Measured scan of single mutants.
Amino acid sequence: MDVFMKGLSKAKEGVVAAAEKTKQGVAEAAGKTKEGVLYVGSKTKEGVVHGVATVAEKTKEQVTNVGGAVVTGVTAVAQKTVEGAGSIAAATGFVKKDQLGKNEEGAPQEGILEDMPVDPDNEAYEMPSEEGYQDYEPEA
């Protein structure tokens, strides 16, 4: 019985440690998101679009440190934060509304985080759909 109880105690310690790591990862992701939003706020009209992409990228980098179902929630929060940063930029006159959601080359930025393969159960990952990809044929 002692062996059984000791095993359960060790398992509990492992769960607590994993929860603490997840909590730490979420806190880091939130900190990076805040950094990115402050970065966007300090940019001029020309830099705002690039700044919004930076927020998304920093958040995406930190999301990889967070495991399990938390990833889905962090990704949703990050996307809403990026959308909010863009709205703030438009409201303050840093950028025109028609410039939001495009990178410096004018290509749409939507789907940055949505296409990231995420499995809350950590069982399997699927690649994003290939609808947006084109076949590449090298020139002879």
Rank of each mutant, 00 (worst) to 15 (best):
residue 140 A to L: 12
residue 30 A to L: 14
residue 124 A to P: 04
residue 83 E to G: 10
residue 20 E to D: 06
residue 52 V to C: 03
residue 126 E to D: 14
residue 86 G to A: 14
residue 45 K to H: 02
residue 99 Q to N: 08
residue 82 V to G: 02
residue 94 F to A: 14
residue 94 F to S: 06
residue 62 Q to P: 02
residue 26 V to F: 07
residue 38 L to E: 02
residue 3 V to F: 08
residue 116 M to C: 07
residue 60 K to N: 02
residue 33 T to E: 00
residue 7 G to Y: 08
residue 84 G to C: 13
residue 62 Q to T: 13
residue 138 P to D: 06
residue 118 V to F: 09
residue 137 E to C: 09
residue 118 V to K: 12
residue 49 V to Q: 09
residue 137 E to P: 04
residue 6 K to P: 00
residue 1 M to A: 00
residue 6 K to Y: 02
residue 40 V to W: 03
residue 103 N to I: 10
residue 53 A to T: 08
residue 76 A to R: 07
residue 64 T to S: 11
residue 103 N to S: 10
residue 39 Y to C: 05
residue 134 Q to K: 12
residue 9 S to C: 11
residue 27 A to E: 01
residue 39 Y to P: 00
residue 42 S to K: 11
residue 51 G to H: 05
residue 20 E to R: 05
residue 130 E to L: 07
residue 104 E to L: 09
residue 76 A to N: 11
residue 108 P to G: 09
residue 29 A to I: 13
residue 89 A to D: 02
residue 13 E to G: 04
residue 120 P to I: 09
residue 11 A to P: 00
residue 104 E to Q: 11
residue 33 T to K: 00
residue 88 I to T: 03
residue 108 P to N: 08
residue 60 K to W: 03
residue 132 G to C: 09
residue 137 E to R: 11
residue 116 M to V: 01
residue 25 G to I: 11
residue 64 T to A: 14
residue 119 D to Q: 15
residue 117 P to R: 04
residue 43 K to V: 12
residue 72 T to S: 12
residue 9 S to K: 11
residue 115 D to K: 05
residue 59 T to Q: 01
residue 137 E to T: 11
residue 5 M to S: 03
residue 29 A to L: 09
residue 73 G to I: 10
residue 69 A to E: 03
residue 135 D to V: 07
residue 138 P to A: 10
residue 127 M to K: 06
residue 125 Y to P: 08
residue 93 G to Q: 03
residue 138 P to N: 05
residue 92 T to M: 03
residue 38 L to Y: 11
residue 1 M to Y: 01
residue 38 L to F: 13
residue 68 G to I: 13
residue 17 A to L: 09
residue 77 V to T: 03
residue 71 V to K: 06
residue 94 F to R: 01
residue 112 I to N: 05
residue 39 Y to D: 01
residue 60 K to E: 01
residue 80 K to Y: 09
residue 67 G to V: 11
residue 124 A to V: 11
residue 113 L to H: 12
residue 133 Y to F: 15
residue 2 D to K: 04
residue 19 A to G: 02
residue 44 T to C: 15
residue 42 S to P: 01
residue 106 G to F: 10
residue 54 T to H: 06
residue 109 Q to L: 14
residue 87 S to L: 14
residue 94 F to P: 03
residue 129 S to D: 09
residue 20 E to M: 11
residue 129 S to N: 05
residue 114 E to Q: 12
residue 138 P to T: 09
residue 14 G to H: 08
residue 131 E to P: 05
residue 129 S to I: 06
residue 52 V to I: 07
residue 19 A to I: 08
residue 112 I to A: 02
residue 107 A to F: 06
residue 86 G to E: 12
residue 11 A to Q: 00
residue 109 Q to D: 14
residue 97 K to A: 12
residue 88 I to K: 03
residue 103 N to M: 10
residue 120 P to T: 09
residue 107 A to Q: 04
residue 63 V to C: 06
residue 7 G to V: 14
residue 15 V to W: 08
residue 89 A to K: 05
residue 12 K to E: 00
residue 120 P to W: 05
residue 54 T to L: 13
residue 62 Q to R: 09
residue 136 Y to D: 01
residue 124 A to C: 14
residue 20 E to Y: 14
residue 1 M to D: 00
residue 8 L to K: 00
residue 102 K to E: 11
residue 6 K to N: 03
residue 40 V to Y: 15
residue 22 T to D: 00
residue 52 V to H: 01
residue 82 V to T: 05
residue 63 V to N: 01
residue 46 E to L: 05
residue 73 G to H: 06
residue 36 G to P: 00
residue 49 V to I: 11
residue 75 T to N: 09
residue 45 K to M: 07
residue 20 E to S: 04
residue 51 G to E: 01
residue 44 T to M: 15
residue 33 T to L: 07
residue 42 S to D: 03
residue 83 E to N: 13
residue 97 K to D: 15
residue 53 A to Y: 15
residue 81 T to K: 02
residue 81 T to A: 09
residue 113 L to G: 15
residue 139 E to Q: 03
residue 80 K to L: 08
residue 30 A to V: 07
residue 110 E to T: 13
residue 32 K to T: 03
residue 71 V to T: 05
residue 114 E to M: 02
residue 4 F to L: 08
residue 105 E to H: 02
residue 39 Y to T: 03
residue 64 T to F: 10
residue 112 I to P: 07
residue 34 K to W: 13
residue 72 T to I: 11
residue 84 G to K: 12
residue 89 A to T: 05
residue 3 V to H: 05
residue 38 L to S: 01
residue 14 G to T: 15
residue 3 V to D: 01
residue 17 A to Y: 03
residue 118 V to S: 09
residue 52 V to M: 05
residue 43 K to N: 01
residue 30 A to N: 00
residue 92 T to S: 05
residue 56 A to T: 13
residue 88 I to M: 08
residue 48 V to T: 02
residue 54 T to D: 01
residue 34 K to R: 07
residue 36 G to W: 14
residue 74 V to P: 01
residue 38 L to I: 03
residue 126 E to W: 02
residue 31 G to Y: 09
residue 26 V to I: 12
residue 78 A to V: 11
residue 49 V to W: 13
residue 65 N to F: 14
residue 75 T to Q: 12
residue 69 A to P: 04
residue 96 K to E: 08
residue 72 T to H: 15
residue 8 L to H: 00
residue 80 K to C: 04
residue 69 A to C: 09
residue 4 F to A: 00
residue 100 L to W: 02
residue 9 S to Y: 14
residue 134 Q to N: 08
residue 4 F to I: 11
residue 5 M to N: 02
residue 59 T to D: 00
residue 116 M to E: 13
residue 41 G to V: 14
residue 71 V to H: 09
residue 23 K to L: 05
residue 61 E to Y: 03
residue 30 A to Y: 13
residue 11 A to K: 00
residue 135 D to M: 11
residue 127 M to I: 10
residue 8 L to N: 00
residue 78 A to M: 14
residue 92 T to I: 10
residue 124 A to W: 13
residue 11 A to E: 00
residue 91 A to W: 13
residue 29 A to Y: 06
residue 32 K to M: 04
residue 17 A to E: 05
residue 114 E to A: 03
residue 91 A to K: 07
residue 31 G to Q: 13
residue 32 K to Q: 03
residue 45 K to A: 04
residue 46 E to H: 08
residue 78 A to K: 05
residue 33 T to A: 11
residue 98 D to V: 03
residue 107 A to L: 13
residue 7 G to Q: 04
residue 75 T to F: 14
residue 133 Y to G: 10
residue 115 D to A: 13
residue 112 I to S: 14
residue 79 Q to D: 03
residue 41 G to S: 08
residue 26 V to C: 08
residue 137 E to H: 12
residue 45 K to Y: 02
residue 31 G to F: 15
residue 93 G to H: 06
residue 132 G to V: 08
residue 27 A to Q: 14
residue 79 Q to V: 08
residue 39 Y to G: 04
residue 10 K to T: 03
residue 61 E to V: 08
residue 100 L to I: 06
residue 12 K to G: 02
residue 57 E to V: 05
residue 8 L to G: 00
residue 56 A to W: 13
residue 123 E to A: 07
residue 11 A to W: 14
residue 50 H to W: 09
residue 88 I to H: 02
residue 76 A to S: 08
residue 126 E to Q: 04
residue 8 L to W: 15
residue 61 E to Q: 11
residue 9 S to W: 14
residue 20 E to H: 12
residue 101 G to F: 15
residue 60 K to A: 01
residue 43 K to M: 14
residue 129 S to E: 11
residue 125 Y to N: 08
residue 63 V to L: 14
residue 91 A to G: 05
residue 46 E to Y: 11
residue 55 V to Q: 01
residue 110 E to A: 03
residue 6 K to I: 09
residue 125 Y to T: 10
residue 64 T to E: 07
residue 34 K to A: 08
residue 25 G to R: 08
residue 24 Q to A: 11
residue 55 V to K: 02
residue 60 K to D: 01
residue 32 K to R: 04
residue 112 I to K: 05
residue 81 T to V: 15
residue 34 K to D: 00
residue 53 A to G: 03
residue 68 G to C: 05
residue 68 G to M: 06
residue 112 I to L: 04
residue 82 V to Y: 08
residue 119 D to P: 12
residue 47 G to I: 11
residue 77 V to D: 02
residue 101 G to A: 05
residue 12 K to M: 14
residue 32 K to D: 00
residue 103 N to R: 11
residue 99 Q to S: 08
residue 95 V to P: 14
residue 24 Q to Y: 07
residue 51 G to S: 06
residue 76 A to V: 11
residue 46 E to G: 02
residue 97 K to C: 07
residue 123 E to V: 07
